[in-house]
Amino acid sequence: MDALKSAGRALIRSPSLAKQSWGGGGRHRKLPENWTDTRETLLEGMLFSLKYLGMTLVEQPKGEELSAAAIKRIVATAKASGKKLQKVTLKVSPRGIILTDNLTNQLIENVSIYRISYCTADKMHDKVFAYIAQSQHNQSLECHAFLCTKRKMAQAVTLTVAQAFKVAFEFWQVSKEEKEKRDKASQEGGDVLGARQDCTPPLKSLVATGNLLDLEETAKAPLSTVSANTTNMDEVPRPQALSGSSVVWELDDGLDEAFSRLAQSRTNPQVLDTGLTAQDMHYAQCLSPVDWDKPDSSGTEQDDLFSF
């Protein structure tokens, strides 16, 4: 819950932080000083300027060897085509990944977070970031790969997607708890209302004896509580940590079903599988986004697919 609360507080303090972009060759504004600060901008989305290598189908939802083989196929196909790589912007948030063309600003792909089953910074092609997700059109699994400016960037994108998945799962947990509370309150309110109706004398007997209905007592009954809980029953509950912020979080049926399955089948359902080692994760978390744009010590960066 700490990640969720800190993310909400950060967004309320400075929503404009989320509009910064990394990996864009110096076009961005001043960047936060450390990885923790940038992680807090996830709610509205972190932007990464990358190059799209392509996509291939895979048979399993996750796995280092599986993704490595898929990336190898994608890279080989991209090299064989001889075409310049498409420059894209990857927007990562707890909602998922939005992929747009840098030149036309046209939407290429919009992947809900619950469809993503794996992401990684490839070991062999260490400047490549990739994720595996279920197609929104059918049940097939797709591996999408992107060329980053350097290994640090690939690791940073991988960690960002993993963190977005974690925050999304926490949102789901909060929403589920809130819905259970509202359902319980609604049920209790309905029981109270039913009890009051059972003990209320029939209207005919009131008229016969000349008694008047006590409207004041009726007004004191917990009807307002019942209506408050039943009027918006169809509205999706939102985490309290975000009250007053500009973010509107809505959970669709697909996300609810997917996270429910994860909660039942996995020990740590909030953790998205990645190909990063503990050492890689520690190294990337210690980086400032400013470091992502620094040239690798191995030599001059080449803006070309064939540089790796």
Rank of each mutant, 00 (worst) to 15 (best):
residue 51 K to G: 00
residue 122 D to I: 01
residue 246 S to C: 12
residue 196 R to F: 02
residue 189 G to T: 04
residue 91 K to D: 06
residue 90 L to C: 02
residue 190 G to V: 04
residue 119 C to P: 01
residue 150 K to N: 02
residue 90 L to W: 00
residue 138 N to R: 15
residue 35 W to S: 08
residue 140 S to K: 14
residue 110 N to E: 08
residue 206 L to F: 09
residue 245 S to L: 03
residue 53 L to M: 03
residue 68 A to T: 00
residue 70 A to L: 02
residue 41 T to Q: 11
residue 252 D to Q: 06
residue 156 A to T: 04
residue 277 T to D: 07
residue 157 V to Y: 00
residue 307 S to E: 07
residue 185 A to P: 15
residue 80 A to F: 04
residue 299 G to S: 01
residue 91 K to R: 10
residue 269 P to K: 03
residue 120 T to Y: 03
residue 81 S to C: 12
residue 213 L to M: 12
residue 171 F to I: 08
residue 127 K to I: 00
residue 174 V to Q: 01
residue 27 R to M: 15
residue 280 D to F: 02
residue 204 K to Y: 05
residue 128 V to G: 00
residue 56 T to R: 03
residue 290 V to T: 05
residue 109 E to N: 08
residue 169 F to P: 03
residue 237 P to H: 10
residue 153 M to E: 12
residue 16 S to V: 07
residue 56 T to P: 02
residue 201 P to Y: 03
residue 82 G to S: 02
residue 62 K to W: 03
residue 276 L to N: 05
residue 177 E to T: 06
residue 16 S to W: 12
residue 107 L to Y: 10
residue 87 K to H: 13
residue 218 T to V: 05
residue 201 P to F: 02
residue 12 I to K: 08
residue 140 S to Q: 10
residue 60 Q to H: 15
residue 299 G to T: 14
residue 175 S to T: 10
residue 28 H to V: 14
residue 249 W to Y: 03
residue 82 G to E: 01
residue 158 T to E: 02
residue 87 K to L: 13
residue 107 L to C: 05
residue 37 D to P: 13
residue 181 K to P: 12
residue 8 G to A: 03
residue 240 Q to T: 11
residue 127 K to P: 00
residue 134 Q to V: 15
residue 130 A to Q: 00
residue 107 L to T: 10
residue 289 P to Y: 07
residue 47 L to M: 07
residue 121 A to Q: 02
residue 275 G to F: 04
residue 21 S to C: 14
residue 114 Y to F: 07
residue 215 L to Y: 12
residue 4 L to E: 04
residue 259 F to M: 02
residue 48 F to P: 01
residue 182 R to Q: 13
residue 94 P to V: 04
residue 248 V to D: 09
residue 211 N to M: 07
residue 180 E to T: 10
residue 159 L to Q: 06
residue 183 D to H: 08
residue 81 S to Y: 04
residue 195 A to P: 08
residue 242 L to H: 10
residue 272 L to F: 01
residue 282 H to F: 14
residue 110 N to C: 05
residue 2 D to Y: 14
residue 133 A to V: 08
residue 10 A to W: 01
residue 172 W to T: 03
residue 107 L to H: 12
residue 155 Q to Y: 08
residue 291 D to G: 11
residue 106 Q to E: 07
residue 244 G to C: 07
residue 299 G to D: 00
residue 204 K to E: 15
residue 121 A to W: 05
residue 26 G to M: 01
residue 35 W to F: 02
residue 71 I to A: 01
residue 248 V to I: 14
residue 264 Q to C: 02
residue 81 S to N: 12
residue 48 F to A: 01
residue 249 W to R: 08
residue 240 Q to F: 06
residue 196 R to N: 08
residue 65 E to T: 15
residue 301 E to T: 05
residue 79 K to W: 05
residue 275 G to W: 04
residue 153 M to P: 01
residue 128 V to P: 00
residue 40 E to K: 13
residue 133 A to P: 03
residue 262 L to M: 03
residue 98 I to M: 05
residue 92 V to S: 01
residue 74 I to R: 01
residue 125 H to F: 00
residue 274 T to H: 12
residue 87 K to W: 08
residue 22 W to T: 01
residue 206 L to M: 11
residue 153 M to K: 08
residue 182 R to V: 10
residue 25 G to Y: 05
residue 256 D to A: 05
residue 201 P to C: 02
residue 237 P to L: 07
residue 239 P to F: 11
residue 93 S to A: 10
residue 288 S to Y: 08
residue 140 S to H: 15
residue 15 P to M: 07
residue 144 H to E: 00
residue 276 L to D: 10
residue 89 T to W: 10
residue 257 E to L: 10
residue 192 V to N: 05
residue 75 V to G: 00
residue 204 K to L: 04
residue 153 M to A: 09
residue 279 Q to C: 09
residue 34 N to A: 10
residue 71 I to N: 00
residue 102 N to S: 15
residue 248 V to E: 06
residue 110 N to H: 06
residue 122 D to R: 00
residue 199 C to V: 03
residue 277 T to P: 13
residue 139 Q to S: 14
residue 46 M to V: 12
residue 256 D to Q: 04
residue 236 V to H: 14
residue 200 T to S: 06
residue 291 D to A: 09
residue 176 K to N: 12
residue 12 I to V: 15
residue 4 L to R: 14
residue 65 E to C: 08
residue 284 A to E: 07
residue 136 Q to W: 05
residue 235 E to R: 08
residue 108 I to Q: 07
residue 16 S to Q: 07
residue 133 A to C: 11
residue 307 S to W: 04
residue 44 E to N: 11
residue 270 Q to S: 13
residue 45 G to T: 09
residue 149 T to M: 11
residue 288 S to P: 15
residue 237 P to D: 10
residue 94 P to D: 05
residue 47 L to W: 09
residue 247 V to A: 02
residue 160 T to H: 15
residue 153 M to Q: 07
residue 287 L to K: 10
residue 10 A to R: 06
residue 137 H to W: 07
residue 32 P to C: 08
residue 45 G to I: 08
residue 281 M to I: 01
residue 202 P to L: 08
residue 41 T to M: 12
residue 108 I to A: 05
residue 233 M to F: 04
residue 133 A to F: 01
residue 268 N to P: 05
